[in-house]
């Protein structure tokens, strides 16, 4: 349904996304993880046709057989809401403060599906019930500032579902929420995707949440997709040193992703941080921070190597192992 092949995004000469390959089918649930600046949001924005104006896209991005990599804004407008929809990280500011949330949610229905106001309202009502907003009749008439963060995130999810999209992208949908609410939102997204046979791309720093919500996973580092496979397999037995680093920093995956003080822990406890795009090594972008670096790493780019069906990573260690 949605296919990326060798999709790259350049800002000037720097590649913020390199040769991304991805196939998303109806019902897929895909987690995307990686440190800050690894290009997760950029990937999501590409899928929405909303990459920044200064971004230069190359490669293919096909949705429903149409190549959209260089499509005009107008063509994207037709796909948004009905094919692809997105829930953003910050639910506080993501709703128009001057509008009743009901009006915000029905707007795409009126526009894209040509519903009457009455029909749209009915659909909004059932959507609110579906995403777990109690007393939907009253909530529809409220303004964003009258709702809690969790409620607003649910409203945003309802908005994203307004025109029954094939793919829902959730970019760190829970970072701004407190622990219990975050958990419930994660479960909600997972349930919605299953019940609606809708594809879900779930972007998160929270490996526990990704483990809960998704079946497949892509690990990103500095614009590269460095490892992928079934979520359980990748998180259970990572092969890429970067993935290992991410997990090493998180021995408690699957338990609760929290510190003693109850705050969520952020991923990067790998020493150092992602260098700026211009300062990346020519070869493997993880070179320099990688604990098991090989001599050729800094200069030669590792190819993506399939290790099993639908499982693989881009690291010289994998090819070295074969040569042995």
């Amino acid at each position: 349904m949605i296919e990326l092949s060798n999709l790259s995004v350049h800002f000037g000469h720097a590649a913020a996304l390199r040769d991304a390959n991805l196939v998303i089918e109806r019902g897929d649930r895909l987690g995307v993880v990686g440190e800050s600046g690894s290009g997760k949001t950029l990937l999501a924005l590409c899928l929405m046709g909303m990459a920044p104006d200064s971004a230069r896209l190359t490669g293919q991005l096909s949705i429903d057989g149409q190549d959209m990599a260089r499509a005009a804004e107008r063509d994207w407008q037709r796909l948004r809401s009905r094919w692809v929809a997105m829930v953003f990280q910050e639910p506080m500011a993501a709703l128009n403060p001057l509008r009743r949330v009901g009006d915000t949610v029905i707007e795409p229905m009126l526009l894209h599906d040509g519903l009457t106001r009455r029909a749209a309202r009915d659909r909004a009502l059932s959507l609110f019930e579906e995403v777990g907003i109690p007393d939907p009749d009253r909530r529809l008439r409220q303004f964003p500032h009258e709702m809690s963060g969790g409620q607003r995130q649910r409203v945003l999810i309802a908005l994203a579902l307004a025109c029954n999209p094939m793919l829902l992208i959730a970019d760190e949908p829970t970072t701004a929420l407190d622990a219990n609410v975050a958990l419930r939102i994660t479960d909600l997204l997972q349930r919605l995707a299953r019940e609606r046979e809708m594809a879900l791309v779930f972007i998160s720093h929270d490996l526990a949440a990704v483990a809960r919500a998704t079946e497949d996973i892509v690990v990103m580092y500095a614009g590269d997709m460095v490892e992928r496979g079934r979520t359980a397999a990748v998180l259970g037995a990572p092969v890429h040193p970067y993935t290992k680093g991410l997990l090493g920093a998180r021995p408690d995956v699957g338990v609760a992703g929290r510190n003693a003080d109850g705050k969520r822990r952020r991923l990067p406890t790998i020493p150092g941080s992602v260098p700026p795009l211009q300062g990346l090594p020519e070869g493997c972008r993880f070179a320099g921070r990688c604990p098991v670096e090989l001599p050729q790493c800094a200069t030669q780019r590792p190819a993506f190597t399939q290790t099993e069906v639908a499982r693989g990573a881009a690291c010289h260690l994998l090819t070295e192992a074969r040569h042995d």
């Binding site: 107008r74 948004r80 809401s81 953003f88 910050e90 500011a93 128009n96 707007e107 908005l159």
Partner: peptide, 25 residues
């Protein structure tokens, strides 16, 4: 502001976003 991005993500046209969402705010 973020809600403008939300509006765009819902497939609204530039014109509609400008007059219905940006202007009132």
């Amino acid at each position: 502001q973020d809600f403008v991005r939300t509006a765009r993500a819902s497939g609204l046209s530039h014109r509609r976003i400008l007059w219905r969402h940006v202007l009132p705010n």
